[in-house]
Amino acid sequence: MSLIQRLRRRLFPPREAIEGYESEELVDIIFRKTIAFQGEEDWPLVTGLRTVLDFGGGAGVHYKTAQRQLPDIRWAVVETPAMVRRAKKLSTDSLRFFEQIGEAADWLGDVDLVHSNGAIQYVPDPVETIRSLCAIAPRKLVWHRVPISDGEARREVQTSYLSDNGPGQVSSPTEKLVRYKRTWIPEQAFIEAHEGYRMVERSPDPGEHGTHQFRFVPS
């Protein structure tokens, strides 16, 4: 973002706000940004994989990077009803969108990887959702940008700019704020929710200050 854009935001902050991830305006900008997104050059995480369940994967932005390396990879995105309705237009034989974890897993069959980047903290019950993801018996789970609490669960309202959501940049309507309810997940509860799995990697996530990234494999 340019200096002029930052100054404009500071001097003329948006007056309108969008509440939560079901907003059609928010879905629209993520959808259009995903279509314009060209993908990254390389993603070692997906090397050798056949099937991925992407929890909170938007309109399939991570698939666009993976598919460049592995044209035959099958990818199931689990998202909000509003995002699924819009993103279904992008469905192919290899990419599908679902509201329910079980439906996504049934379509994939064996799940090589459960991938989630900055999403689990926005669901009503993160711990129960983690248990549901483990219940489909993936070969590994990889989490990015997870806010971890040292004590009890802590809930807060997070605010972002509408135009900052989604990958890259596209023309956007009048700038607005977006508010989400976010949970800081207790460390012990997060780890224990992975029943049948063991943590093999944990580190601060470079993608968002104060969050962590994890990898779990069957125990």
Rank of each mutant, 00 (worst) to 15 (best):
V200P: 12
V146H: 04
P206E: 14
P173R: 12
H209R: 14
L141P: 02
S163T: 14
S172G: 12
P167T: 01
S203C: 09
W184P: 06
R139L: 11
V170T: 10
G210E: 09
W184N: 08
R202M: 13
M199E: 02
G168L: 09
G168W: 09
T211A: 03
Y180Q: 08
E156T: 02
P206T: 15
A193H: 05
A189W: 09
H144W: 08
A189M: 12
T211N: 03
R202K: 15
R155Q: 15
T159P: 05
D164H: 00
V142L: 01
Q169C: 08
Q213R: 11
G168I: 08
A153H: 07
R139S: 04
R179W: 06
H209P: 11
V146A: 03
E187N: 08
K176C: 07
D205R: 05
Y180E: 14
P206C: 14
E175Y: 12
G196E: 13
L177Y: 13
T211G: 01
W184L: 06
S171N: 11
L162D: 00
R145M: 15
K140T: 12
Y197V: 04
E152Q: 09
R198M: 04
W143N: 07
T159W: 08
P173I: 05
D150L: 15
K140E: 15
Y197P: 01
R198D: 01
E156F: 09
R139W: 13
E208L: 14
W184E: 04
T174M: 11
E156P: 02
V142F: 14
D164M: 07
R182T: 14
R198G: 09
V170W: 08
E152S: 14
A153T: 10
L162K: 03
E192P: 05
R179L: 10
V170H: 04
T159K: 00
S171L: 15
P147T: 09
S203P: 03
K181W: 13
D205M: 03
K140G: 12
S160K: 06
K140I: 10
H144Y: 13
W184D: 07
V146F: 04
